[in-house]
C-alpha cells in the first residue's frame, strides 16, 4: 500500500499525518510513503515517522519512504534517521 504525502510536515500538520497513518497501517505489512511532494519536515514529523515505524515493526511490518527530496533527506541524515528508516 502506498500513501502520497504532500506539503509541510510541521508541528501543526504532524497530528493529521499521525492519525492518517494510524488508520492506514492496520493489516498492512509494508506501507510505502511517497515523500516526493514533501518540502519540509520538523521534529514533530520525525516523531510521527519513528513512532509509526516502531508500531509497524512490532507487528512484523515496515514503513518505506520513497522519493525523498534532498531537503528532507538532509534532515533525516542530520538526525541519523536515514540509517534506521527504510528509504528507497
Amino acid at each position: 500500500m502506498t500513501a502520497i504525502i504532500e506539503g509541510r510536515i510541521d508541528t501543526l500538520t504532524a497530528p493529521a499525518l499521525q492519525e492518517e497513518l494510524t488508520n492506514s497501517w492496520e493489516g498492512v505489512t509494508e506501507l510505502v510513503l511517497d515523500f516526493g511532494k514533501v518540502e519540509y519536515i520538523s521534529s514533530a514529523g520525525l516523531r510521527v515517522l519513528i513512532s509509526a515505524e516502531k508500531q509497524m515493526a512490532s507487528a512484523g511490518g515496515r514503513i518505506v519512504l520513497k522519493s525523498v527530496s534532498p531537503v528532507v533527506m538532509e534532515v533525516l541524515e542530520m538526525t541519523g534517521l536515514s540509517n534506521v528508516l527504510h528509504i528507497e
Binding site: S42, S43, L46, R47, K54, A57, V75, M78, T79, L85
Partner: peptide, 13 residues
C-alpha cells in the same frame, strides 16, 4: 530504531 526515544530531536536540530 527500537532503542530510540520518539522525541528529543528538536533542540539537536
Amino acid at each position: 530504531l527500537e532503542e530510540r526515544p520518539i522525541g528529543g530531536l528538536g533542540i539537536f536540530l
